[in-house]
Computed example of a mutant assay.
Amino acid sequence: MAIISCPVCEHRVSNKAEQCPKCKTDLTAATPEKLAAQHRDRMLRQSQSLMNQSMLALLLFLAGFGILYWWQPETGSYNEYVSTAAIALGFCWYVVCRARIIWLKRKK
């Protein structure tokens, strides 16, 4: 008996199991081609989700700069703190998303 990864959710299951206990994928009737296609689909969905998140992070980052540039809030005001926080959060979120995208591509 060996431990394998579920092709859909990557949960560790026995190779004798009929279905994955986590995602309920049928493992007995699955051909290698079908399992590879499910794995590809999951990777594509995850990649698209990360790209969407990186775009939202970039928008947050640019919105923070837009507030600072067009509104020109006074020093120490609430608007200045919000825009600075948006810039910092957007930048960090963007960097993390891009790192996760690179990691996902290497994982393939």
Rank of each mutant, 00 (worst) to 15 (best):
S77Q: 09
I3Q: 15
H39W: 05
V95P: 01
P73C: 03
L50C: 00
S54H: 07
F65R: 15
Q53D: 13
R106G: 07
S83I: 07
L68A: 03
A85H: 06
V95R: 14
M1H: 10
Y78W: 15
R100G: 01
H11F: 15
R98H: 09
Y94R: 13
K107P: 00
W70V: 13
R45F: 00
L68W: 01
E74R: 13
L62T: 10
Q19E: 11
A86K: 02
Q46A: 06
A99P: 02
A2R: 13
I87Q: 04
I87N: 02
M1N: 12
L27C: 02
M43N: 06
K22I: 03
T75W: 13
E18A: 14
R45I: 03
L58K: 11
A30M: 10
E80T: 04
K34H: 11
S83V: 10
A99H: 12
C92M: 11
W103F: 11
S77Y: 09
N79W: 15
N52P: 00
A2I: 09
Q72H: 14
G76D: 02
V95E: 07
W93G: 03
I4N: 04
A2T: 10
R106C: 01
W93Y: 13
K22A: 09
Y81T: 15
V13I: 14
S5A: 15
C6R: 00
H39Y: 07
A86E: 03
L89N: 09
V95W: 06
A85Y: 05
K108R: 15
I87G: 01
I102M: 07
M43E: 01
K24Y: 07
L68F: 03
S49T: 12
S5F: 13
Q19M: 11
L27F: 01
V96I: 12
W103L: 12
Q19V: 02
I102W: 13
V95S: 08
R40K: 14
W71I: 13
I67A: 06
S5I: 14
Q53S: 14
G76H: 04
R42I: 04
N15W: 11
E33C: 01
